[in-house]
């Protein structure tokens, strides 16, 4: 989910687990209205996990393990189960066992962020919603966290919704992009299709990935590359292909001349 500051992204996602109640309209989860009479919001929240911006500000227990066990504890699970889930969740975000007994406040920024995400994963949600999960992290930390989330999505079949300002991350990880603008959905489509609207996105205060931009421009000036490239690998393959084809077609011409 992308959109400039104030476009409504954070407000929208807070509806998805019932934190905010819609003024009008309906939300269906698994085919059922979450506003239906008697619908258990508690159950919804155990299945739709929401990770806020800067979630590390919400760490509060004395140890990393206790902090991650807090969610399962609230689900009423036994201490054994709480522990088991916490250990699994911490493993999923790549926190080593040696840190389990550390105070969350001794950890680095990236580690804290991961512990906070583990706290939500320990609820074993079916849907994971993250509001700018990589804000403030360095490139390495960012790559690691997104890599771990992508792995969860693939291996555990968790549905992931993440809010970001980084178009390169969208191109790399997302199946679909939702673009918010002034509280409305401006686009909801595959990254390649959405990034084709370069000018409209610019008007919304958004970018396209650098590689998309240059490939669109190369396409416009007549290079036989496609304009819907969104990742570095695609761009590289296309450019190499174009130059290789050019070189071999001229080989043939020369052979005919001879």
């Amino acid at each position: 989910m992308i959109g400039h500051t104030g476009s409504g992204k954070s407000t929208l996602i807070q509806h998805l687990n019932g934190l905010l109640h819609a003024t009008a309209g309906d939300i269906l989860y698994d085919g059922e209205s979450i506003y239906a009479e008697g619908y258990s919001l508690r159950k919804l929240r155990s299945q739709v996990g929401l990770v806020f911006q800067y979630p590390e500000h919400q760490l509060f227990e004395a140890t990393v393990l206790d902090d991650v066990m807090f969610g399962p504890k609230n689900l009423g699970l036994s201490v054994e189960e709480q522990k088991e889930r916490a250990i699994t969740a911490l493993g999923q975000v790549g926190i080593e066992e040696s840190l389990f007994d550390a105070s969350p406040f001794e950890l680095s920024g990236g580690q804290k962020r991961r512990v906070a995400i583990a706290g939500v994963l320990a609820m074993q949600p079916k849907v994971l919603i993250l509001d700018e999960p990589t804000a403030g992290l360095d490139p390495q930390g960012k790559k690691e966290i997104l890599g771990e989330i992508a792995k969860l999505q693939k291996e555990q079949q968790i549905t992931v919704v993440f809010v970001t300002h980084c178009m390169e991350d969208v191109a790399e990880y997302a199946d679909l992009i939702l673009v918010m603008n002034h509280g409305k959905v401006a686009f909801y489509d595959t990254p390649a299709r959405v990034f084709a609207h370069k000018e409209e996105l610019k008007d919304l205060g958004l970018d396209v990935p650098q590689v998309t931009l240059v490939m669109q421009e190369l396409h416009e000036i007549g290079l036989p590359v496609s304009a819907d490239v969104i990742t570095l690998k695609q761009a590289k393959d296309q450019i190499l292909r174009v130059f290789a084809a050019n070189a071999s077609s001229r080989d043939e011409e020369v052979a005919c001349d001879a």
Partner: peptide
């Protein structure tokens, strides 16, 4: 700019 959107 760490906490800003692309336009910001």
């Amino acid at each position: 700019t760490a906490m800003l959107d692309p336009a910001g």
